[in-house]
Design a protein around this nucleic acid. Structure first.
Lengths: 290, 290
DNA sequence: GCGCGCCCATACCCGTGCGGTATCGCTGCG
DNA sequence: CGCAGCGATACCGCACGGGTATGGGCGCGC
């Protein structure tokens, strides 16, 4: 191969390309990156020259990904995640000013509270326990925190959450219930089926953020955490199917009805594959003994 | 967190750090990188400032990794591999000047020849077959080619090769034989045990390259491929235990004797996890039907 | 149908920061 | 005690990344 004359791809270029590929709009991408549009155009063109292939189809009215561009978007995101993970994990491995470096765990705000509490208690009681930082985040965000190394482990709920690419250990399994505004016709039922909950008039399903932080289109309200979800239900703005454990945090104005044919939801503890951290292994081991 | 003022880690800095961490010597690392030593020192110091933690212990006579430095070496290598993989896979996804982009497969030079030939024949006979580039490499190098995206699939031989982090499908299993110079006292035996082969006088085991391309210390010869290995055996410079299939490529001067208690070796086809390539899936499917 | 406006590319300029050379300071060794 | 090896520091020049101004192509509205 004689193409070794071109220098290697820099992560900055990749960040730029990913921004453009996500926005499909140079000016918006430039704004998101905090820079002007012309240098962004130039940087992407330079990346295309480096790779020897067009990544974007520009038609002066719109921008579209080429085949190679789609590959680079996917692979580039993974590489940037790995880069960020290296950075975060190194920071975490640094001797902290306050004692020994601990580990960080992510969980959806408002979900698995009592399980997490038990886990933290059990871990604290272990010999050699390290401090555990709890990072609460919105639904669907744990995977990103885990991939980018901001946390060491996460509590996830497949099949709601995607656990692709992580090592997991199941902790518990439960059914699901529908959360309905009190007084709704269905709220007096003792059980429901999924078909009962399709197209409820005036109660569109909420919209959860996607992995990239954007929200799908639709009539339902955007939801960032469990408390907000419960409030939206009590206000009669939405209805939703959630794991049973959510009943423990209900407030007035919300009724939970079991959904008999909803898929079982498991709570798993997840960590990055190839983890070499003893602290992570110990925490997972403690979790599986709960 | 108020530390968002520092810009993100650049891949160039990581490459520099990894070089220094591997050499544990600034001047040698600078030479390897094709640059002078002072800017390298400065770049690493800047990386340490960015991360807020020392990565290396310099004692003016030697360089050692700190705890955080060891983490960054491990994670940084993975991130750089991912970056390189993004680059290679994008190049491969580009519409090639000659027809449609194919896929690339890596195998140890001189190993699994007939299996590979059968696979290529079977694949070529399939409808919708794409062109397959065969990349021959030294033992232990396939994993790197796969991780860095230079090839899409590889033939590996656990437990000799490490398949950690790849998806694999087993193709065949075989025993192992000892390759000895013709006329060696043991070559008249009909079978051997591993203990028979320990510390053979004048026949030190060969040294295979490690994953990073360096060779372990020892008295045996360095080996890059199978042909070289066989020649070294016939010259009475080494003796080695290899999978049975190697018998098919023997030359005069080399005798193969079964080793009854050597671990079974499997031939597997491996590919990166989360592969989305239809061509890879088809090739793997063809391979498993052989 | 023509013109306006959106949006990406080009042209040009400036400053930062990367890399090079020269040199210092430390330390282990002969 | 002096030398040699090695990393850090000082200083400099230039290449490249980023900014502003502007061009050009195309869709859309009146």
């Amino acid at each position: 191969m004689g193409a070794r004359s071109v220098p290697a791809v820099e992560s900055r270029e990749l960040r730029y390309f990913v921004a453009v590929a996500e926005e499909l709009h140079f000016s918006r991408a430039a704004e998101r990156l905090g820079m002007a549009q012309p240098p962004l155009s130039r940087a992407v063109a330079q990346l295309e020259r480096r790779l020897g292939t067009p990544l974007l189809e520009r038609s002066s009215r719109s921008v579209a990904l080429t085949e190679a561009g789609a590959v680079l978007l996917r692979e580039g995101r993974a590489a940037l995640d790995a880069l960020e993970a290296a950075e975060h994990r190194t920071r975490r491995a640094a001797p902290a000013p306050t004692g020994t470096p601990g580990i960080a765990i992510a969980t959806k705000a408002g979900a698995s509270d009592e399980l997490l509490a038990k886990l933290l208690d059990a871990h604290a009681a272990e010999p050699g326990a390290v401090s555990v930082e709890v990072v609460l985040c919105g639904p669907g965000q744990q995977a990103r925190l885990l991939r980018t190394g901001r946390v060491d482990v996460a509590l996830l709920h497949p099949p709601i959450d995607d656990v692709e690419g992580f090592d997991v250990e199941a902790l518990r399994t439960e059914g699901q219930v529908a959360l309905l505004p009190a007084g709704h016709p269905l709220s007096s039922r003792t059980s429901l089926r999924l078909t009962d909950l399709e197209d409820l008039p005036g109660l569109p399903p909420p919209r959860y953020p996607r992995a990239d932080g954007t929200y799908p289109e639709g009539p339902g309200p955007e939801v960032h955490d469990h408390a907000q979800l419960v409030q939206l239900v009590s206000l009669g703005r939405t209805a939703v199917v959630v794991p049973e454990v959510a009943r423990t945090h209900l407030r007035g104005g919300v009724t939970a009805v079991p959904v008999v044919d909803a898929p079982e939801v498991t709570t798993v503890i997840a960590w990055p594959p190839h983890s070499r951290s003893l602290a992570v292994a110990r925490l997972v081991e403690t979790a599986t003994r709960l």
